[in-house]
Design a protein around this nucleic acid. Structure first.
Length: 833
RNA sequence: GCCGGUGUGAUGGAAUUGGUAGACAUACCGGACUUAAAAUCCGGAGAGGGAAACCUCGUGCCAGUUCGAGUCUGGCCACCGGCACCA
């Protein structure tokens, strides 16, 4: 059975035993403090950050994928000479802890801390090179006190303010529901019909930064799709704001339009159900009141609003058209958003599709005022609105015959001249409502006094969240906690009450990246070290965060900058968005029962196999289809590598060292050696620039296959073989750090692989004497030719024409054109003679 | 509904700047080893036609640009992500 002597067996075990070697290697990293990071001005820094997890209980495959990507890049950058920071922490506030508390009769804090302990263990078992000294959990007072401090600064600067906002109210559970807790208009636990309530909330003026948030997108190295989504989300538009005179009233009606060129096509105006005009009409007319009631009971989610059937009701009121002086009826429409513009729109059904649908439904007139320059079969206002900006104004009196830009200006000037309008910039972006009527979040540091609302003084921070609570699902337990609520107004010494709302959990995740860089600062939110590490060089996380989280974090960074806490303008220089992990074609979820527990795979195959498979199965930005067979295949490859290296050691020639002399190599050795350096080039580019680990692994597999087929005879053969085998180990090490560290040490190296310099490409090894070119005739592949690397175009064409498999397609043809693409192909374009 | 993506063999994917479609794996089939199985190793394979050489077709669908299109453009279909209180 065994062909090797006992001595060799002692040299290295034959079987790949991840369960033995992985904990050993991890212990070594821990005792050596391998991943402890400090500021070092001598080296270029690289801050690699993965979106931190919500501690839901145990890691899922999405985490494993995300964090493996970050770890591979971090290890690669370390080996490439960078001072790398790779921290990890916990996005620890949030609803699931409250839900678990109701279910398990356990306080959210205890549940959360247990989950963190378990998941930290899992991350360590996967071998990620984090600097655990910087670990943070957002639910600890050490962390959130600085968030409270920042909020009080925002209040001082006028960046935070109070405004009424609508929330989903569950009348049975007596609690505010998140949008996802409302299913088909009913509370998910109680099943009661959800009502809408208006309550006072804290808002942050993200819109003050709208221009900068939009313009600075040009300065970051992010995927175009994410930048486009953010641009559209911010939605900056140039338009005209003007007011109508209301008939029989001294009040005016403000509207905003991006299409002032169509002003002569107004046939009605539409206001939101929450608009004061609608409220007034409701007071006078019970039918209108009933309609508004119906509108306000609609979901607050935009997706529901946009898909709801269009409904409206005339108010009986009207406005006077500013140019024509005609009466224009005011309607209430359920598709007009109170939060956008002034909550009222001028309706031009001829040239706006929503206005058209509404007008068609309620038999309101449609007046064409724009005509296409050239015939357009789509132009039929009885079928649909025509919304292009490429036409000419018609039926517009003094504004007739103008293109979009001229009509825009002419109408804007006219309205401005009348003193009722002006050109303005408008944004789709709304201010950020940060108040939540929930317990498990950061307390808003505000007290209610007989002198009004006051922020808590710096010296009284943090406002600590009590952790010993009972959560029963009917409102926040904070409300009834006298020991929390009752306080004293420090200005007057009189009784006051604490705010019981907590912050949106996006608040915590909007600045954690900065705190990691300043993790040991006890006396300030951030210290000078933040500017050593920031901005984050590479931020990695799910595409689902493309808008909200990433926009809020960018906004916070600019606020921090304006408070002189950071120097940079943007928090994340480069962004890598990863796709989801799927099984059987759909997202893994408990309800579908198609989850894969990474822990079971680690137990069965080891961390390296799990890491290798997740990196090999797909490039990061694509969704990853789970495959149990694929995992077994990844494990098989590691066994092959393990066998290759251990046999190499056993054969005793692994000490064959020294520079390979290209001139003395046999053809076979030369080919393996070229392949080796091609692989180094490919893997370096794939990991360092493209972040395509699947192709990096594929090329290492190819190299491994070549080396296994290559039988070394001479001393120089052995040198090639040794260099190739060591390179395989080094190139794989960022992906599968344990087995490679183990093999590396068995190859006789005392230095840890983490400290090894990434291999360099030998350019002279890449050179080829001859090249294979493809020959096409009329674009179809017809043959191949082998040419000298320095062959000129004429020689290549002659050889191509003479190639028998090509020549037969040239018979009786006239050559019209010949294309030679260097290093690649020849295309002969021919036609019958 | 709006905004943004994705679509390639039986499967995951490769083809990086418009230049050989299917690298590398997985599953499958055949062979070696074994009493046998597992493991391991070697080989095969997009579809259709043909004894073979070889030919034709082929990257969701329909058009277009080009000497040449998986890649670019227009239209469509399906699926996925986000839509402001899930994180």
């Amino acid at each position: 059975m065994f062909f090797h002597s006992k001595d060799h067996l002692e040299l290295m075990e034959r079987d790949y035993q991840p369960q033995v070697i992985e904990p050993e290697i991890q212990q070594h990293w821990e005792s050596e403090q391998t991943f402890k990071t400090s500021e070092d001005p001598q080296k270029p820094k690289f801050y690699c950050l993965c979106m931190f997890p919500y501690p839901s209980g145990k890691l899922h495959m999405g985490h494993v994928r995300n964090y493996t990507i970050g770890d591979v890049i971090s290890r690669f950058m370390t080996m490439s000479g960078y001072n790398v920071l790779q921290p990890m922490g916990w996005d620890a506030f949030g609803m699931p802890a409250e839900n678990a508390a109701i279910k398990n009769q356990r306080p959210p804090a205890a549940w959360t801390y247990d989950n963190i302990d378990h998941m930290r263990g899992q991350l360590k078992r996967l071998g990620f090179g984090y600097d655990w000294d910087r670990e943070l959990a957002t639910c600890t007072p050490d962390y959130y006190r600085w968030e409270q401090w920042l909020f009080t600064r925002m209040v001082e600067k006028g960046l935070a303010y109070r405004k009424k906002a609508r929330v989903n109210w569950d009348p049975v559970d007596q609690t505010v529901l998140a949008n996802e807790q409302v299913i088909d208009g009913r509370g998910w636990r109680s099943g009661a019909l959800v009502e809408q309530r208006e309550i006072d909330q804290w808002f942050i003026r993200i819109t003050d930064y709208a221009d900068e948030l939009l313009d600075d997108l040009d300065s970051v190295d992010w995927p175009e799709q994410v930048k486009t989504m953010q641009k559209n989300w911010i939605g900056r538009s140039q338009g005209v704001e003007f007011s109508f005179e209301r008939k029989g009233s001294t009040e005016r009606l403000e509207v905003y339009t991006t299409r002032p060129d169509t002003i002569m096509g107004i046939t009605y105006v539409a206001v939101a159900a929450q608009h004061p005009i609608a409220q007034q009409a409701a007071a006078a007319n019970p039918d209108v009141a009933a309609f508004i009631e119906e509108c306000t009971s609609m979901s607050v989610a935009e997706a529901d609003l946009a898909q709801a059937p269009k409904k409206g009701m005339a108010t009986g009121e009207s406005v006077i058209h500013p140019i024509t002086g005609e009466d224009v009826p005011i309607w209430i429409a359920n598709f007009v958003l109170m939060d956008y513009g002034s909550g009222a729109v001028m309706a031009v059904p001829g040239h706006d599709q929503r206005d058209w649908e509404f007008a068609t439904q309620y038999n309101l007139p449609i007046k064409p005022v724009i005509q296409p320059m050239t015939d357009d079969p789509e132009y039929d206002l009885s079928q649909q609105a025509w919304c292009e900006k490429t036409g000419i104004t018609i039926n517009s009196g003094q504004f007739d015959g103008l293109n979009f830009n001229d009509a825009f200006q002419a109408v804007a000037n006219a309205l401005e001249g009348m003193g009722i309008g002006r050109i303005t910039t408008n944004y789709r972006l709304r201010d950020w409502g940060v108040g939540r009527q929930r317990y498990w979040g950061c307390p808003i540091p505000v007290i209610h006094t007989d002198e009004g609302l006051k922020t808590v003084r710096d010296e009284d921070l943090p406002v600590t969240l009590p952790e010993d609570v009972v959560v029963d699902g009917s409102g926040s337990p904070l409300v009834g906690r006298r020991d929390f609520v009752d306080t004293i107004d420090p200005d007057t010494g009189r009784a006051a009450t604490r705010e019981t709302d907590t912050f949106d959990t996006f608040m915590e995740s909007s600045w954690y990246y900065a705190r990691f860089a300043s993790a040991f600062s006890n006396h300030a939110m951030l210290d000078k070290n933040a500017n050593y590490w920031l901005p984050v060089d590479l931020y990695i996380g799910g595409i689902e965060h493309a808008i909200l989280h990433l926009l809020y974090a960018r906004f916070f960074h600019k606020v921090l900058r304006d408070l002189d806490l950071v120097e940079s303008d943007e928090p994340f220089k480069k962004l890598l968005t990863q796709g989801m992990v799927l099984k059987d074609g759909s997202k893994m979820s408990k309800s579908k029962g198609n989850t894969v527990d990474p822990q079971e795979l680690i137990d069965q195959y080891g961390a390296d196999t799990v890491r290798l498979f997740t990196m090999f199965a797909a490039p990061p930005e694509l969704s990853l289809e789970w495959s149990d067979d694929g995992v077994a295949g990844a494990h098989r490859f590691l066994k092959r590598v393990h066998t290759l290296v251990s046999e190499h050691i056993t054969e005793g020639n692994h000490s064959m060292s020294g520079e390979v002399n290209l001139d003395t190599l046999s053809d076979a050795a030369r080919d393996v050696y070229r392949k080796l350096h091609e692989t180094i080039a490919k893997v370096s580019d794939d990991i360092g620039r493209r972040y395509h680990f699947n192709t990096a692994i594929a090329s290492i597999m190819e190299l491994t296959n070549s080396v296994m087929k290559f039988s070394a005879q001479t001393a120089s053969d052995w040198r090639v073989r040794s260099e190739a085998i060591e390179a395989i180990v080094v190139l794989l090490s960022p992906i599968t750090p344990h087995v490679t560290e183990h093999l590396w040490s068995n190859l006789g190296h005392s230095q840890s692989l983490v400290d090894v310099t990434w291999p360099k490409v030998r350019e002279d090894a890449l050179a080829r004497n001859t090249l294979t070119l493809v020959v096409q005739v009329n674009g179809k592949l017809r043959g191949r030719i082998e040419v000298a690397a320095d062959a000129d175009k004429d020689l290549i064409l002659t050889m191509a024409r003479d190639e028998p498999s090509v020549a037969k397609f040239l018979e009786g043809m006239i050559e019209k054109k010949a294309i030679v693409v260097p290093q690649k192909l020849v295309n002969l374009v021919v036609a019958p003679a």
